[in-house]
């Protein structure tokens, strides 16, 4: 968005932002998002979530829309290296922050991240819809130091639901990747 901050309410009681507004309808925001190291310029309505911006505008469809209500974890991405839910994050809110999605996890030469490789090796999915969110969550879980035991992995991966019920294999994959990343 154009850099504008609030000091005092304007005299007519309506704030303006981005393009001029008559106060009756919300305005379009012009924002820049930094995703997987690349800068993207977007014109969006203020209500657009990071999830919808990624999928519908930037065509980065690896981040999945499951419940769209903050309950399933399918839309997990990293903001400044921390896992968050893209469905409850406004795109405008993360302007200037560094965002990583599942598309940005592997090396540029295609070498998979240790967590991605472990999910393949352990067959940690059936339908695969929750998998990008599981993997993004697992990468952060290990980095946070919350993958010390199966019990801890289950607790700190609880925000990622898998309706196929692949949980035992998911725990095995996180355990394996945590061990590899430690050594």
């Amino acid at each position: 968005m154009t850099s504008q901050t609030i000091i005092d309410p304007p005299e007519d009681g309506h704030f303006r932002n981005g393009k001029a507004s008559n106060g009756a309808s919300p305005t379009t925001l012009s924002i820049h998002l930094t995703i997987n190291g690349r800068d993207h310029a977007l014109d969006i309505e203020p209500r657009v979530t990071l999830l919808d911006a990624l999928r519908e505008r930037l065509h980065l469809t690896g981040t999945k829309k499951g419940c769209d209500q903050g309950q399933c974890g399918a839309c997990t991405v990293h903001v400044e290296g921390e896992r968050v839910l893209a469905c409850l994050t406004l795109a405008a809110q993360v302007e200037g922050r560094s965002i990583t999605t599942i598309e940005g996890l592997a090396d540029e030469d295609g070498t998979l991240h240790a967590v991605q490789a472990a999910f393949l090796e352990q067959d940690a999915f059936q339908c695969g819809y929750c998998t990008p969110g599981q993997i993004m969550s697992a990468v952060a879980c290990i980095r946070e130091g919350h993958a010390g035991s199966d019990e801890e992995i289950r607790e700190y991966m609880a925000g990622n639901l898998c309706r196929c019920g692949a949980y035992p294999h998911i725990v095995a994959a996180v355990r394996q990747a945590a061990r590899e990343l430690r050594s």
Binding site: I6, F15, N17, L90
Partner: peptide, 18 residues
């Protein structure tokens, strides 16, 4: 979700005013 205006406050005073 109904649309809304979005403003970013850079201080507590600005946020309180808004």
């Amino acid at each position: 979700m109904r649309d809304f205006s979005y403003l970013r406050a850079d201080s507590v005073e600005a946020a309180r005013n808004a």
